[in-house]
Structure formats: C-alpha cells, structure tokens
Amino acid sequence: MTSTELAPSSNAGALVTTSAAKNDSQQFLTFRIGAEEYGIDILKVQEIRSYEAPTRIAHAPPFVKGVVNLRGVIVPIVDLRLRLGCTAEYTSFTVVVVLNVCGRVVGIVVDSVSDVLEMAPGTIKEPPEISASIDTRFVTGLGKVNERMLILLDIEGMVGSPDFGLID
C-alpha cells in the first residue's frame, strides 16, 4: 500500500500549485467524486493512501467499508461516494484520504485526488440558497479556479454530524 503523508506545516511538495502562502489564503486538498470536484481544508488531512479493501464490520451501514490498522491505530473507512449517494467503482485511481477530525482519525474513499490549491478569500463564494430538499449544510462555499468549479466542504462538520454515524 502506498501512502503520501501531509504535514500541516509542509508545502506538500509538488502538490502545491501556487507560490508562497499568504496570511489570508487557505489551502484545500481537491478530489473528485464522479464528475464533481470537491475541496477540504488541507489542515484536516493526515495522509493519502491507495485504496485497499478494509476489514468489514458486521452490521455497518453500506457506506462504512470497514476498518484498517494504520500504524497501530484502527481507522474507520467511509466511502464518501456512497455516503453522498453516488456510485462507487474501485479503480487504480481510487484513494483513501486519512483525516484528523473531531479528535479522531477517519479515512474517506474518493475517486481520485487532484492537487492542493491555495485560494484567496475573494475567489470563494457563498453556497447558493437551494430548496430545503437539498442538504447543503456542509458546503462552506464554491471556489472558482480558472474554468473549474470547486465545492468546498466542511469535512469536520460532515464527519462529526450524527447522520454521518461515526461520532456520538
């Protein structure tokens, strides 16, 4: 299993696509689920690992794929694609993003990781007001990068929410 560790204070090597950090800028790890591109705060990311089938847990919901032993820590693996109602195909690009959120280590499965982007506050727009039938609680904003639209997620709020089912 290959792994890329990301230290919060590091530049994450070649993954960073912009120059020196600015005080008011924020860095996001970008990843794909289906045709959409998402971003999460890079400071929540511990490492990126290639997907390896975890040990299944009995009676877990379908989006909880199981657990892995990560250097002595038992880490639950959640397929974010299934949790968001998307289809999930496991390919050579499928990765697990290991997060430190809500005082826990959790892995989320995504289709692929794109890069780390630094975004100034002016490039991030508020999420639009949409009908109550669409859950946008965990969308913190929309970022525009050239011709790409990036959906920015509050991953800590999402993983920590009762309906996610991981943290009491």
Rank of each mutant, 00 (worst) to 15 (best):
T4Q: 09
E5L: 11
L6Q: 01
L6R: 00
S10G: 07
S10C: 01
A12W: 10
T18C: 01
T18L: 05
S19F: 09
S19I: 06
S19R: 00
S19E: 12
A20V: 10
A20M: 02
A21N: 00
A21Q: 01
K22C: 05
N23D: 13
D24Q: 00
S25L: 00
Q27K: 04
Q27N: 09
T30I: 02
F31N: 00
G34W: 03
G34L: 04
G34E: 03
A35S: 13
E36K: 08
I40Y: 05
D41S: 05
D41P: 03
I42A: 06
I42W: 02
L43K: 02
K44L: 14
E47Y: 05
I48M: 03
R49Y: 10
R49N: 10
S50P: 06
S50W: 09
Y51A: 02
P54E: 06
R56N: 09
R56Q: 13
A58Q: 09
H59E: 15
P61Q: 04
P62S: 14
P62E: 15
F63H: 15
V64A: 12
K65W: 14
V68H: 02
V68T: 06
N69Q: 06
N69R: 01
L70A: 03
L70V: 04
G72I: 02
V73P: 05
V73M: 12
V73Y: 08
V75H: 03
I77A: 07
R83N: 07
G85A: 07
G85S: 08
T87D: 15
A88Y: 00
Y90T: 15
T91Q: 10
S92W: 02
T94V: 09
T94W: 07
V95W: 05
V96Y: 03
V97C: 10
V101W: 03
G103Q: 11
R104L: 13
V105P: 07
V106M: 05
V109I: 12
V110M: 07
V113Y: 11
S114V: 14
L117D: 09
L117I: 14
L117N: 08
L117G: 03
E118P: 06
A120H: 12
A120L: 13
A120I: 10
A120G: 11
P121R: 06
P121D: 11
G122L: 12
T123I: 11
T123M: 13
T123N: 10
K125T: 14
K125V: 14
P127V: 11
E129I: 15
E129V: 15
I130A: 09
I130T: 12
S131H: 12
S131L: 09
A132V: 12
A132Y: 06
A132P: 06
D135A: 03
D135Y: 02
D135T: 03
